[in-house]
Structure formats: structure tokens, C-alpha cells
Amino acid sequence: MIPERNLMAACGLQEKQQSKWVADITDMMAEGPSVVLRFEKLRKAIVASPEPMLWFSKIRMEMEMLQLVGVSRLYKCRDVSDAILEEIETRQVDITREV
């Protein structure tokens, strides 16, 4: 993006419309991930079939935990071959393939 370029002005938005958009986007950024629930189609998809979302959330959490434990063990066992670290890496590869 070019900092000097005002994309809203290039779209022909009025000053009042621009300030409304800026306020809405700022609110959405402050709200965080729950902003997704504002979108009707996404909200319906999540409510209609929560299993895929739960599965994805579980897999993501496992991957993050493996990464944290792996980095921790990597620093502790730099000079030694570590079987647990190898198992962590194997599981990360398996998860990546599964997803």
C-alpha cells in the first residue's frame, strides 16, 4: 500500500461516508475474531455444522502446543539427539498432511 494514497477518496466516497467506514473498520478490528459472527452466512455455517470448526480448533491447538514444546526442547537439548523432539516433528508432519 502507498501511505499517501487515499483509497476511499479514489472510490468517490463522501467525507461522511469515509468517516463511517473508518469507524466501522476500527470497531471491527477492536472486536477481534468474534467479528466473524457478524457475517450472516459465516454465522449460519458455524451454527449449522460446528463439528468442522471444533475439529479445526482442536487441530490448531494441538499444533500450537507441539510447536511450543518442540521449541522448548530444542533449546534444552541442542547437542543431544532427542527422541521426544523427533516424535513432535513426526506428529507435526502428520497433522500437516491431515489438514
Score class of each variant (00 low, 15 high):
85 L>M: 10
58 K>S: 09
53 M>E: 11
53 M>P: 01
17 Q>P: 00
72 S>C: 09
73 R>H: 11
3 P>T: 08
34 S>D: 12
65 M>R: 14
40 E>A: 12
80 V>R: 12
2 I>V: 11
42 L>M: 09
25 I>S: 00
82 D>N: 14
14 Q>Y: 04
37 L>W: 15
73 R>F: 04
77 C>L: 06
67 Q>I: 05
20 K>A: 09
9 A>S: 10
57 S>A: 14
27 D>N: 13
98 E>Y: 02
11 C>D: 07
77 C>P: 01
80 V>I: 10
35 V>C: 10
62 E>N: 12
32 G>L: 10
73 R>D: 04
7 L>D: 10
9 A>K: 10
44 K>Y: 01
60 R>E: 10
63 M>P: 01
52 P>S: 13
60 R>H: 09
42 L>Y: 12
58 K>W: 05
68 L>P: 02
49 S>M: 09
12 G>E: 12
92 Q>F: 00
94 D>I: 01
7 L>M: 13
7 L>V: 13
40 E>R: 14
66 L>V: 08
64 E>H: 12
22 V>D: 05
87 E>M: 04
29 M>N: 03
9 A>L: 11
22 V>H: 11
67 Q>P: 01
37 L>S: 14
11 C>F: 05
71 V>N: 13
70 G>E: 06
7 L>R: 13
94 D>K: 02
95 I>P: 01
68 L>I: 09
71 V>Y: 06
71 V>P: 00
64 E>V: 09
78 R>P: 00
69 V>Q: 08
15 E>Q: 02
47 V>D: 01
10 A>T: 03
63 M>E: 13
5 R>M: 08
64 E>C: 07
8 M>R: 13
49 S>W: 06
85 L>H: 06
95 I>G: 02
60 R>F: 07
13 L>F: 01
92 Q>D: 03
31 E>V: 06
77 C>T: 11
15 E>R: 04
76 K>G: 01
69 V>L: 10
56 F>L: 15
17 Q>Y: 00
82 D>C: 12
9 A>I: 08
47 V>M: 02
48 A>G: 03
55 W>P: 02
23 A>K: 15
71 V>I: 07
14 Q>C: 04
17 Q>W: 02
23 A>H: 15
73 R>P: 02
21 W>L: 12
13 L>T: 00
49 S>T: 09
30 A>K: 15
14 Q>W: 07
86 E>C: 03
73 R>V: 05
5 R>D: 08
2 I>K: 15
74 L>A: 11
68 L>Q: 14
1 M>L: 12
